[in-house]
Amino acid sequence: MDRPTMRVWIIFLLCLAGQAFAASITEEQPILDEPVVEEEPIMEEDEVMPEGGANPVQVETGEFDEAIEIIEEDVNAENPCLNHHCKKGKVCEVDEENTPMCVCQDPTSCPASVGEFEHVCATDNTTYDSSCHFFAHKCSLEGTKKGHKLHLDYIGPCKFIEPCLDAELNEFPLRMRDWLKNVLVTLYERDEENNLLTEKQKLRVKKIYENEKRLQAGDHSLDLLAHDFEKNYNMYIFPVHWQFGQLDQHPIDGFLSHTELAPLRAPLIPMEHCTTRFFEQCDSDSDKYIALEEWAKCFGIKDQDVDKDLVI
């Protein structure tokens, strides 16, 4: 990946620091899919290769909160909906008894998108004007097989994603490890009074930042990245654990579900066509979740160096 793309990636993950938001993964990626609730038979969707482009930098926190619903008990007598929060795709309305309830949002009530960077591609190969439009449509299919399988796939209009070859798949973790290390270093450099990292995280990153042998950020060859990983292996252990901790949030249980993986996966797919296959491969036991041990192995971290205490 070239330097402009590298900067896009770092900027995006800067926005992600300390925040994990949820989304869903494509039907073609069963490793992170959830059990289907067979309630209403629906004809299967035709599978078509996507087209288009993407700009992941514009993603806002909470863009993918598909599976999170928070309902507070403190209800305002005059407007019960003030303190009643609904998940993406739903809005609050009151019934005849003035009781708040969540109902599917009308897609026409969503704000009009101001540019292609707000568009999203779903697993039905449809480009939606925004995540608001997508989740409103998904809500209308709630309780059906089609609705269960429909997920937000990636940021930007649908586009053709080239198949990932075996050789390319082997190269993917080389770049990814280097990105994670550089993202942490960038967060550390900008962390004065910004609370981008916790104190424990700062101590870990400080050791990497001050190490004179650290490979500086740049457009490096794959051979150099592979050599640096072998020579400075210890510098990569914490960044891999850190990213797992950033994603494992809903709930914090030591496993990554499809909703938790989305903040990393959805913006990355348009830039890295091996993203989907890489994360499929990570689920080595095919249980639809990626455990810390599986995650670490994907990035070449040795079994004896996997440490839950590093997920801080």
Rank of each mutant, 00 (worst) to 15 (best):
T5H: 10
T5N: 11
W9E: 13
W9T: 12
G18H: 02
F21E: 12
E28S: 13
P30T: 09
P30D: 06
I31H: 15
E38H: 12
M43A: 15
E44R: 09
D46T: 10
G52Q: 06
G53Y: 13
T61H: 10
D65K: 01
I68K: 07
I70A: 08
E72L: 12
E73G: 05
D74G: 05
A77P: 14
P80V: 01
N83C: 01
H84N: 08
K87G: 11
E93P: 01
V94H: 02
E97M: 09
C102Y: 03
C102S: 06
C102M: 04
V103N: 00
P107T: 04
P111W: 01
A112V: 15
S113C: 06
F117Y: 14
H119A: 12
C121M: 03
T123Q: 00
T123Y: 01
Y128G: 03
H133L: 07
F135K: 02
F135Q: 02
A136F: 05
K146R: 12
D153P: 00
Y154D: 07
F160D: 12
C164R: 00
C164M: 07
L165D: 13
L165Y: 14
D166W: 00
E168Q: 12
E171Q: 06
L174T: 01
W179S: 08
L180S: 09
K181Y: 04
L184W: 06
V185P: 02
L187K: 00
E192T: 13
N194R: 13
L196S: 02
L196E: 02
L197R: 00
T198R: 00
E199H: 05
R204V: 09
E210M: 09
K213L: 08
L222D: 04
L224E: 11
A226G: 10
F229A: 01
Y233S: 10
Y233M: 02
N234A: 14
N234H: 13
M235S: 11
I237N: 03
P239E: 06
V240S: 03
D248E: 05
I252F: 12
I252N: 07
L256Q: 03
S257E: 08
L264Y: 12
R265G: 05
A266P: 04
A266M: 10
P267V: 08
H273C: 04
T276R: 10
F279Y: 14
Q281M: 13
C282M: 14
S284Q: 11
Y289L: 14
I290Y: 04
L292S: 00
L292D: 05
E294F: 00
A296Y: 01
C298R: 01
F299G: 00
I301P: 06
I301R: 00
D307W: 03
D309S: 13
L310C: 02
